[in-house]
């Protein structure tokens, strides 16, 4: 059957993207350092959906959701911003997995996102609204803030204490949090979790998927490191 596995086209796309698009620059923002990959070189990634300003905002945001610290790698060094950007070009990013027909009625939060915006627009309109709201409330741009200041802003968004429209602060926060954890912990074939570093940190073996000999070694640490779909030649 001439159907390729779902991962292969994404991988090809990702590799092509990384290879062919010249590196962007974040020079002039406080985040220039964050655009450097963990190996010290430029990440070599140019966003395909986000504008440079938006990508700087994304980078500054996810850097605080999962910061680099003594426990392990941060979201930025594991290419989570790149992952989120790539996801915006998928069916998911366009809202193609969601029921998007009107009317869009207000409902309690227990009914899920009823706003009618796909992830691309939650980010695009949400980041614009956040920039305006943050400037008004704090008197500076998010990307010019220190880590501690950004934490204050993110906490306000999480607690619905930053007035924003049309995308409420808590919705933009939730979208960021979901996609950041996805990019941090998904198979590297999707563009994040560089070097499987997040899996190594928590002891997750990735795509090994055979524990016949380990299921009844009770209480023992699983000794093998992770493997990714890419390692396995898919």
């Amino acid at each position: 059957m001439p159907i390729s596995p779902p991962g292969s086209s994404r991988r090809a796309f990702l590799l092509k993207t990384v290879a062919m698009i010249p590196a962007m620059t974040l020079a002039g923002t406080a985040l220039a350092g964050l655009a450097q990959a963990a190996d010290g070189g430029p990440s070599g990634y140019a966003p395909s959906f986000f504008t440079a300003d938006e990508f700087a905002f994304v980078t500054a945001f996810v850097d605080r959701l999962i910061p680099a610290d003594e426990e392990g790698p941060g979201a930025v060094e594991l290419d989570v911003p790149n992952f989120i950007d790539l996801q915006m070009n998928t069916t998911y990013g366009h809202g193609g997995l969601w029921y998007m027909h009107p009317p869009f009625r207000q409902a309690p939060a227990t009914f899920g996102n009823q706003l009618g915006l796909p992830p691309r627009e939650i980010y695009r309109q949400g980041i614009a609204a956040a920039e305006t709201a943050i400037q008004a409330k704090y008197g500076k741009r998010f990307t010019d803030m220190t880590a501690g200041e950004r934490d204050t802003v993110i906490t306000a968004m999480q607690k619905k204490a930053l007035a924003m429209a049309p995308v409420p602060a808590s919705m933009l926060f939730g979208q960021f949090l979901t996609n950041t954890k996805e990019g941090y912990f998904s198979d590297p074939i999707h563009g994040g979790n560089r070097g499987m570093a997040a899996w190594k940190m928590i002891g997750y073996p990735g795509a090994r998927a055979d524990f016949t000999d380990w299921v009844d070694r009770y209480g023992a640490k699983y000794p093998f490191g992770p493997v990714s779909i890419t390692d396995l030649g898919a």
């Binding site: 059957m1 159907i3 596995p5 779902p6 991962g7 292969s8 998928t90 069916t91 998911y92 997995l97 996805e182 912990f185 998904s186 198979d187 074939i189 999707h190 990735g206 795509a207 998927a209 779909i229 396995l232 898919a234």
Partner: peptide, 18 residues
Amino acid sequence: YPEGAYPSSIDELTHNSR
């Protein structure tokens, strides 16, 4: 095959998240 084929099926993002 193909939906369950290893290793591409061992992909949490595609199967659970998406």
